[in-house]
Amino acid sequence: MAAFLNQLPALIGVVVGVLGTLLTARLNDRAQWARAQSVRWDERRLEAYSEFGRALKEVAMLAHRLTATTRPHSRSLPIDRQRGLELLADADVQRSKSWEGVLLLGDRDTVRAAREWRWAVTQLDRFARGVAAPDFDWAGAVHHVDECRDRFYVAARESLAMGGDDVAQARWLVDRANAPGRAANT
């Protein structure tokens, strides 16, 4: 019995060591799994945000092209009305599909900003289809779209924990349009 009691501290040390190793391995596995899940969802969020941005940009560009002949100083390439409306309908389907990804994966601030940008682009879409109010201000609406896009990208970058400098385009576009010798690109 004395031999067992002499060995007891070593045995306790081994048991504590094994339990500590098991606990550490479990915590490391859990942390590694959580990191992998985070990366996976960030990748999906990035994909959803990018797809949504491309879809809205397509609708906005088609609205610019459809209205190019009615806006003085437009640098947009005009498109045949019938063909443009068909393309706009297709782009609207993509916009609706991509919206679902943002709703599913986006955080509250990103969804809010996405909703505002989507509504702003819808106003350009409505004008291009000929269903906007008669006093519709195209230049103001385009500027609002640009500001909403900036807010969406700021929220999306925060959602993805992306650093980096200011990527806002609205202010830059206004400064560029107001540069001496340049007509506003409306």
Rank of each mutant, 00 (worst) to 15 (best):
L62H: 09
L124M: 15
R44M: 12
I12V: 15
R83G: 01
H144I: 07
D92Y: 01
D150S: 01
A68D: 08
R149H: 14
A68V: 06
Q123R: 15
F52P: 00
P72R: 10
E43H: 09
N185L: 12
T122Y: 13
S96G: 13
D175T: 00
A141Q: 11
G163L: 04
G101W: 06
R182A: 08
S38H: 11
T186C: 10
R65G: 05
Q94V: 01
D175N: 04
P180C: 07
Q7I: 05
A156N: 02
L11D: 04
I79F: 08
R35A: 12
L22Q: 10
N185C: 02
L11K: 04
R54S: 13
K57M: 13
L124E: 05
A139C: 09
A132Y: 06
T21H: 05
F152H: 01
I12W: 04
V93G: 09
S74D: 06
D146P: 02
W99H: 10
S38C: 03
Y153R: 10
V142R: 14
N6A: 14
N178M: 13
S76N: 09
R151D: 12
R81W: 12
A179W: 10
A31Q: 13
R95A: 15
D175G: 00
P9Q: 04
L27V: 08
A120V: 06
Q37G: 02
A177T: 05
A168V: 00
D80L: 09
G53K: 04
Q7Y: 07
A60Y: 06
A91L: 09
L124V: 08
N178D: 15
W172L: 12
L105Q: 04
K57N: 14
E158W: 01
T110K: 05
L105G: 01
L77W: 06
A63M: 09
V16C: 06
V39P: 01
E147N: 10
V121K: 08
G181H: 06
L56T: 08
R171H: 10
A156T: 01
I79H: 09
V167T: 12
E158C: 03
A183R: 11
A25I: 12
L19D: 01
V39I: 15
A155W: 05
A89P: 02
V16S: 03
E158A: 13
M162R: 09
